[in-house]
């Protein structure tokens, strides 16, 4: 069953220029993604590939220009405002920097109970649930009167998680949730995320630039490049050593660690303002041929569950 579906969504933004209307920056192009029940779907890509825009669409914070967004099987943006409001608590988010996403003037108690208050839960009951939620994310209830700046980075991220989970969501979008944390704290939060996902049977859309972390946490992974998904496959496919999209191969080869024969990928991701024709990756692709420059490859299934957008695969 699909929890969340983006079908051929497009999103572009108007750039303002000194002379008034500027060019339109097309960030996402005909992008399709499906998050299944009880699944952790990883989304990996480098800066500027559009993964945060995708997160905003998946969180229903923004409406796609074109295409459909289904949440729990329902066409979200075609529902009435009231129905949308009823669905909202089932869709939550955790962002990279809890110092920025948590209101610094609110105490932990208010931060965690706020989503319940919006649902009209009485104060005492909300407080009890907050205490329970805090213990589930590994925090003592003594922290309830504290402010975010009095917490460590790991504690803040746990508070953000408690706040997201207190409405018992079905889907949580995690946008770089551990990128600002130290290694030892990151491992604690990743463990916690896995444990909570199993306990509450939630689905995660886990967005990160860090391929090893994405492959650790996710069952399925989608690779994004310049606003498109270029490959999508079960976790094992990425680790099996078989042929992958040339960009995915380059990403894997760039993961630092042991000395290894490496073909460092030349150049840097081009800007969305100058999106290449044909395959978006062709200017940097070591295997590019003539058709790659002209014709945009479609995502095709080359093995069960393994889809790739490449003329050469």
């Amino acid at each position: 069953m699909s929890m969340l579906v983006l079908r051929e969504v497009e999103k572009s933004y108007g750039l303002r220029s000194f002379w008034g209307q500027g060019a339109r920056l097309s960030v996402l192009r005909e992008l399709s993604l499906e998050l299944r029940k009880n699944e952790i779907l990883g989304l990996v890509g480098e800066s500027g590939c559009g993964k945060s825009t995708l997160a905003r669409l998946a969180l229903a914070l923004e409406k796609p220009d074109r295409g459909e967004f289904y949440f729990l099987g329902r066409p979200y943006w075609r529902l009435s405002r009231q129905e949308r409001r009823r669905l909202r608590p089932a869709l939550q988010a955790v962002f990279q920097d809890p110092a920025a996403s948590l209101n610094p003037r609110k105490r932990v108690e208010d931060l965690v109970t706020e989503p319940l208050k919006l649902l009209g839960v009485p104060r005492q009951e909300a407080r009890e649930q907050a205490v329970e939620m805090l213990s589930l994310v590994g925090l003592e209830k003594e922290l309830l009167p504290r402010f975010p700046h009095q917490l460590s980075g790991g504690q803040r991220q746990r508070v953000a998680l408690a706040r997201a989970l207190i409405t018992r969501p079905r889907v949580v979008v995690l946008d770089e949730p551990t990128s600002a944390l130290d290694v030892s704290v990151q491992a604690q939060i990743l463990e916690l995320l896995l444990e909570l996902q199993r306990r509450f049977s939630m689905s995660y859309l886990f967005i990160s630039h860090d391929l090893p972390v994405v492959l650790y946490l996710s069952q399925r992974v989608a690779v994004m490049y310049l606003g498109e998904i270029v490959e999508e496959a079960p976790r094992e496919v990425f680790l099996a050593g078989g042929r992958l999209h040339p960009y995915t191969e380059a990403l894997l080869a760039a993961v630092p660690g042991k000395e290894r024969p490496r073909r460092p990928l030349w150049g840097e991701p081009p800007s969305l303002l100058r999106r290449p024709s044909g395959c978006v990756f062709h200017p940097r692709c070591p295997e590019a041929r003539d058709p790659c420059k002209e014709e945009r490859p479609k995502l095709r299934e080359i093995a069960p569950g393994h889809r790739v957008a490449c003329h050469r695969r």
């Binding site: 460590s152 790991g154 290694v183 894997l252 660690g257």
Partner: peptide
């Protein structure tokens, strides 16, 4: 040892979290 066990390497199956903080 704790740092290495907590570090997400490519293909690692299990991370061991170091409790506490610096």
């Amino acid at each position: 040892r704790g740092l290495l066990a907590a570090f997400p390497r490519l293909g690692v199956r299990r991370l061991e979290a170091l409790p506490g903080q610096v």
